[in-house]
Protein backbone atom coordinates (compact mmCIF):
# COMPACT_ATOMS: atom_id res chain seq x y z
CA UNK A 1 0.00 0.00 0.00
CA UNK A 2 2.93 2.29 0.52
CA UNK A 3 3.46 2.97 -3.15
CA UNK A 4 -0.15 3.88 -4.00
CA UNK A 5 -0.73 7.05 -6.01
CA UNK A 6 -3.37 9.70 -5.30
CA UNK A 7 -5.68 10.14 -8.23
CA UNK A 8 -5.44 13.31 -10.26
CA UNK A 9 -8.74 15.11 -10.65
CA UNK A 10 -10.47 13.89 -13.77
CA UNK A 11 -8.45 10.69 -13.85
CA UNK A 12 -11.12 8.82 -11.97
CA UNK A 13 -13.66 9.79 -14.65
CA UNK A 14 -11.33 8.43 -17.33
CA UNK A 15 -10.81 5.18 -15.44
CA UNK A 16 -14.55 4.72 -14.98
CA UNK A 17 -15.23 5.30 -18.67
CA UNK A 18 -12.45 2.91 -19.65
CA UNK A 19 -13.72 0.25 -17.29
CA UNK A 20 -17.26 0.56 -18.61
CA UNK A 21 -16.01 0.39 -22.19
CA UNK A 22 -15.52 -3.36 -21.67
CA UNK A 23 -18.91 -4.22 -20.24
CA UNK A 24 -21.77 -2.71 -18.17
CA UNK A 25 -20.98 -3.04 -14.52
CA UNK A 26 -22.23 -1.97 -11.06
CA UNK A 27 -20.34 0.37 -8.73
CA UNK A 28 -18.80 -2.36 -6.64
CA UNK A 29 -17.54 -4.14 -9.76
CA UNK A 30 -16.01 -0.92 -11.10
CA UNK A 31 -14.12 -0.30 -7.87
CA UNK A 32 -12.81 -3.91 -7.86
CA UNK A 33 -11.82 -3.72 -11.50
CA UNK A 34 -9.88 -0.46 -11.07
CA UNK A 35 -7.96 -2.00 -8.18
CA UNK A 36 -7.24 -5.20 -10.05
CA UNK A 37 -6.10 -3.60 -13.27
CA UNK A 38 -3.87 -1.10 -11.52
CA UNK A 39 -2.49 -3.94 -9.37
CA UNK A 40 -3.56 -2.06 -6.26
CA UNK A 41 -1.27 0.82 -7.12
CA UNK A 42 -4.20 3.25 -7.50
CA UNK A 43 -5.96 3.94 -4.23
CA UNK A 44 -9.60 4.94 -4.75
CA UNK A 45 -11.57 5.82 -1.65
CA UNK A 46 -14.54 3.61 -2.47
CA UNK A 47 -17.11 6.24 -1.53
CA UNK A 48 -15.73 8.84 -3.91
CA UNK A 49 -16.58 6.60 -6.83
CA UNK A 50 -20.30 7.24 -6.49
CA UNK A 51 -20.42 11.05 -6.82
CA UNK A 52 -18.24 10.59 -9.93
CA UNK A 53 -20.67 8.02 -11.35
CA UNK A 54 -23.64 10.28 -10.70
CA UNK A 55 -21.83 13.21 -12.24
CA UNK A 56 -21.01 11.23 -15.40
CA UNK A 57 -24.59 10.11 -15.59
CA UNK A 58 -25.77 13.71 -15.44
CA UNK A 59 -23.34 14.45 -18.32
CA UNK A 60 -25.04 11.58 -20.14
CA UNK A 61 -21.73 9.85 -20.82
CA UNK A 62 -22.96 6.83 -18.95
CA UNK A 63 -26.45 5.50 -18.36
CA UNK A 64 -27.77 3.26 -15.63
CA UNK A 65 -30.39 0.60 -15.11
CA UNK A 66 -31.31 -1.77 -12.35
CA UNK A 67 -30.51 -5.42 -12.98
CA UNK A 68 -29.84 -8.66 -11.11
CA UNK A 69 -26.33 -9.19 -9.83
CA UNK A 70 -24.35 -12.48 -9.75
CA UNK A 71 -26.12 -13.73 -6.62
CA UNK A 72 -29.48 -12.41 -7.83
CA UNK A 73 -29.50 -9.24 -5.80
CA UNK A 74 -30.80 -6.08 -7.39
CA UNK A 75 -27.91 -3.85 -8.40
CA UNK A 76 -27.54 -0.64 -10.38
CA UNK A 77 -25.62 -1.30 -13.60
CA UNK A 78 -23.85 1.45 -15.50
CA UNK A 79 -23.04 1.33 -19.19
CA UNK A 80 -21.20 3.63 -21.58
CA UNK A 81 -23.35 5.74 -23.92
CA UNK A 82 -22.35 6.79 -27.44
CA UNK A 83 -21.38 10.25 -26.30
CA UNK A 84 -19.49 8.60 -23.42
CA UNK A 85 -17.54 6.52 -25.92
CA UNK A 86 -16.56 9.61 -27.86
CA UNK A 87 -15.61 11.33 -24.63
CA UNK A 88 -13.43 8.35 -23.70
CA UNK A 89 -11.61 8.51 -27.03
CA UNK A 90 -11.04 12.21 -26.69
CA UNK A 91 -9.87 11.90 -23.11
CA UNK A 92 -7.59 8.98 -23.94
CA UNK A 93 -5.96 10.90 -26.77
CA UNK A 94 -5.51 13.88 -24.53
CA UNK A 95 -4.04 11.73 -21.78
CA UNK A 96 -1.60 10.08 -24.16
CA UNK A 97 -0.42 13.40 -25.51
CA UNK A 98 0.05 14.70 -21.99
CA UNK A 99 1.96 11.65 -20.70
CA UNK A 100 4.12 11.57 -23.84
CA UNK A 101 4.97 15.21 -23.35
CA UNK A 102 5.75 14.73 -19.67
CA UNK A 103 7.88 11.69 -20.46
CA UNK A 104 9.74 13.65 -23.11
CA UNK A 105 10.51 16.45 -20.67
CA UNK A 106 11.64 14.02 -18.00
CA UNK A 107 14.00 12.25 -20.42
CA UNK A 108 15.60 15.30 -21.93
CA UNK A 109 15.87 17.41 -18.81
Amino acid sequence: MGKSIDLLQGTLDLLILKTLALEPMHGWGISQRIQQISHDSLQVQQGSLYPALHRLEQQEWIASEWGASENNRKAKYYRLTDSGRRQLEAETAKWERLSAAVAQILQTA
Binding site: Q45, Q46, G47, S48, Y50, P51, H54, R55, E57
Partner: peptide
Protein backbone atom coordinates in the same frame (compact mmCIF):
# COMPACT_ATOMS: atom_id res chain seq x y z
CA UNK B 1 -13.63 2.51 6.77
CA UNK B 2 -12.91 1.69 3.14
CA UNK B 3 -16.06 3.43 1.99
CA UNK B 4 -15.66 6.76 3.80
CA UNK B 5 -18.46 9.02 5.13
CA UNK B 6 -21.72 7.62 3.78
CA UNK B 7 -23.81 10.75 4.35
CA UNK B 8 -21.14 12.89 2.79
CA UNK B 9 -21.04 10.70 -0.29
CA UNK B 10 -24.82 10.88 -0.56
CA UNK B 11 -24.73 14.65 -0.31
CA UNK B 12 -22.07 14.80 -3.04
CA UNK B 13 -24.18 12.58 -5.26
CA UNK B 14 -27.17 14.86 -4.73
CA UNK B 15 -24.93 17.78 -5.64
CA UNK B 16 -24.08 15.92 -8.83
CA UNK B 17 -27.82 15.86 -9.64
CA UNK B 18 -27.65 19.63 -9.67
Amino acid sequence: RKFGGVEQVKEECRDAWG
